[in-house]
Amino acid sequence: MSGIATLPDRAISVGRLRWRRFRTHRAAVASLIVLALLVLFCLAAWPLKTYLGIDPDATDLLARFDPPSAAHWLGTDDAGRDELLRLMVGGQISLLVGLLATAIGGIFGLLIGVTSGYFGGRIDAALMRFTDGMIILPLLPLLIVLGALDLTKLGFTKEFATSGAAGFWRIVVIISIVDWTSIARLVRAAALAIKERDFVRAARASGAGPFYVMRAHVLPNVATPIIVAFTLTVGRVILLESVLSFLGFGIVPPTPSWGNMLNNAQELVNTAPALAVYPGLLIFITVIAVNFVGDGLQHAFDPRSERS
């Protein structure tokens, strides 16, 4: 038929175009590399542990604040434990909390956002009131209260309440309880916009129900803003974890996390300043790299954004 303009033989896929745009964001590319190195660093705990033959949790009160040596490459901490190994293991914990809490909170926000945006009306109004209420809460004090809760009063056994696992899961859960609002709002706005698009109406006219529409149309179309929001959330969650663990309401020693390694920071500042620098520096580098990657993704996904 005459009206069809000839199409280019091979069109570039959306993914390829995005990768191209992402690559123009130099800080984001550099950050991606930094993040990869950080992950490798944290995973290096296992080989290093066997190589040096050290248990990262083993305390040695005769070797407190030892300077760097062949046995302890970064020296030892206030309990005579190997600082480098603890930084590596602590990093695993901090990153894991960041990813897990983001994922759980993200799924929660996703469900709330999709439901709110797709069904609209009363459901939407109620859910958004709830979300607004969540947003205006004083976040940190609330997290501290949640971190201080007595788990036995919630029906958990005493053994569990004082275990390391409880500390880990508690912080994952409380952060995901409070940090889902931005994703919920984002998804809601996107779902609102998408359900009015004609391709959704065409699907509904063919008999599609709400679940089909969400799975086949809404979710794939909100995927990009969600990826960006997820990335930025990971950075925020890592910060929150470090703060809570630092204040003593998060990961409980002897399990290390970058936050709780600064627990007695005031003492460290005077006796072993380097020990006060390392964990914080690692948090800082991780979070800034995550944020740059998020910015790069945003740039890659939004064709209108300009940056170089």
Binding site: L239, A265, P279, G280, V287
Partner: peptide, 8 residues
């Protein structure tokens, strides 16, 4: 500024 842990 966004990424630095305030307490650190």
């Amino acid at each position: 500024g966004i990424s630095v842990p305030v307490f650190w």
